[in-house]
Nucleic acid binder design. Structure first.
Length: 426
RNA sequence: GGAGAGGUGCCGGAGUCUGGUUGAUCGGGCUUCCCUGCUAAGGAAGUGACGGGGCAACUCGUCCGUGGGUUCAAAUCCCACCCUCUCCGCCA
């Protein structure tokens, strides 16, 4: 959520920044207008309240001095003021609710360096590593769903029997490799990140802090009976770890990581990418996350990206980095970069990580602040996160990239320690 | 799920029965200063967040789990909900 004070003092700049995303200013202007109204109401309300307090003290004094009969007049005046105050307070609250619900829907401002663009097609490729379109043999040009089924390690037919379409099931060495990927990702980041195993069913407040609610409720699984939501990513619980807290600057950056299942309804994607492991309602992912000061954030963004890219590199997969343009930026994102892995069997670039800087947008929703060392007062922290490794698409790219002419798949060496001795799948 | 106890400031812990100058006694912690060769001990002062108004000094308001209600006035009385603890039940 944007800082209301910034909207108040710098409306034009905010409007221009939103325009870069292709966002209309209607809601913004409405917030600006409501804010002025609410502040006028506050002034009047506070004045009435202050007077009530003074009158109450007067009554108390009169009672104490045994002159209770003289208290009738101030009591009556106070009663009257109380009604005025209540009406003003209710009106201010109504306005406040409208402001909040608008603010929750207005997206974040893009970082000045975010490239212009209207959509995905305008996202500039920043870097390409290990990709040679002519360097793949026929044995690698087989989609992973065929490879997986042939090797008996992917059984989506039975997954559908168990849970319906758009679920996947890995078996044998395939399941082992899925877990090994998580272990590798955690171990590689344990140098700087505290491992957390958070709840993956969360309250509406938690899902609102990161931006999924209220606007994207259809994308998440909701357990109505208990009013809990299945997390779409560990970003959701991790961002709420310090919700409502004030951190010491010395504690920043606070780096957390978590391996969790991720649940997505894929409401807008029905019928898309239905084969294999490209898109499913449930998958495992290792997320890396940080609370930081504004000054620490740019370097952290680079570090998160380097860590995500480093893992893909380690697994011997061709990949590229794409910067998300203003028009394609997610609602909460201030700046964002995607890592895409090349899958030769599908002949597609698959998004396997999204590394993002949210500035104070999520932290203001979550009310996470810090006390600047030496300074007074508090500041809203910045949050950043990225997928260290999202299992399914990496798993798919491994099957396609490391398939050998004889149809077997070589397990990348960094996974061996976690594979119970399995070094190839045949 | 049932029964009971409880949620107060950075922490501990009063105040709630008997509503009233209580943003809140007291202790600890922390910060600054004084004393001290150093340490320990001691002395003094300070010590929250949020919102509004004001060029500013400053000032007004809100916050005692959350949300309502009663009252001139609520940490204190009433209602609902949430959370924690103990016991029982259930359970990996």
């Amino acid at each position: 959520m944007l800082d209301i004070r910034r909207i108040r003092s710098d409306l034009d700049a905010v409007r221009d920044a939103l325009a870069r995303r292709g966002e209309s200013a209607a809601e913004l202007d409405r917030v600006h207008e409501l804010d002025a109204r609410q502040r006028r109401l506050f002034v009047d309300r506070d004045e009435a309240r202050s007077r009530v307090r003074a009158l109450s003290k007067e009554v108390a004094t009169l009672n104490r001095e045994g002159r209770a009969e003289e208290a009738a007049a101030p009591q009556e005046e106070s009663r009257c003021l109380g009604r005025t105050e209540k009406r003003l307070a209710e009106e201010a609250a109504t306005v406040g609710e409208e402001i909040r619900s608008l603010l929750l829907r207005i997206p974040n401002l893009p970082h000045p360096e975010v490239p212009d663009g209207d959509g995905e097609a305008d996202n500039p490729v920043v870097e390409v590593v290990g990709y040679d379109p002519d360097g793949y043999g026929a044995h690698q040009r087989v989609p992973h769903w065929e490879v997986g089924e042939a090797l008996g390690i992917l059984d989506n037919g039975r997954a559908a029997k168990i849970a319906g379409s758009m679920f996947t099931m890995q078996r044998g060495a395939g399941a082992t490799m899925a877990r090994a990927l998580c272990q590798l990702a955690l171990d590689r980041n344990a140098d700087a990140f505290e491992e957390v195993r958070p709840p993956t069913l969360v309250t509406s407040a938690t899902l609102t802090a990161t931006g999924q609610l209220p606007k994207f409720a259809d994308d998440a699984y909701h357990i109505e009976r208990d009013d809990l939501w299945c997390v779409p990513t560990a970003e959701v619980p991790l961002t709420s770890v310090a919700r409502g807290e004030i951190l010491d600057e010395a504690a920043l950056p606070m780096r957390l990581m978590a391996c969790t299942p991720c649940y997505r309804r894929e409401a807008g994607a029905a019928g898309r990418d239905t084969r294999g492991m490209l898109r499913s309602h449930e998958f495992d992912k290792v997320e890396i996350f940080a609370y930081a000061t504004p000054e620490q954030s740019p370097a952290l963004l680079e570090d998160l990206l380097a860590r995500a890219v480093g893992l893909i590199d380690l697994l011997g997969l061709a990949h590229r980095v794409v910067e998300i343009c203003a028009g394609d930026l997610g609602q909460s994102h201030h700046r964002s970069l995607d890592v895409e892995v090349y899958a030769p069997g599908c002949d597609r670039w698959l998004e396997v990580s999204s590394v993002s800087w949210f500035a104070d947008y999520q932290a203001r929703r979550a009310d996470v602040r810090y006390r600047p060392a030496g300074g007074k007062g508090t500041e809203v922290v910045h949050t950043l996160n990225g997928s260290a490794l999202a299992v399914p698409r990496v798993w798919a790219a491994i099957l396609e990239t490391h398939r050998r002419p004889d149809g077997s798949v070589a397990v990348p060496e960094p996974l061996h320690p976690y594979m119970r001795g399995i070094t190839e799948i045949r």
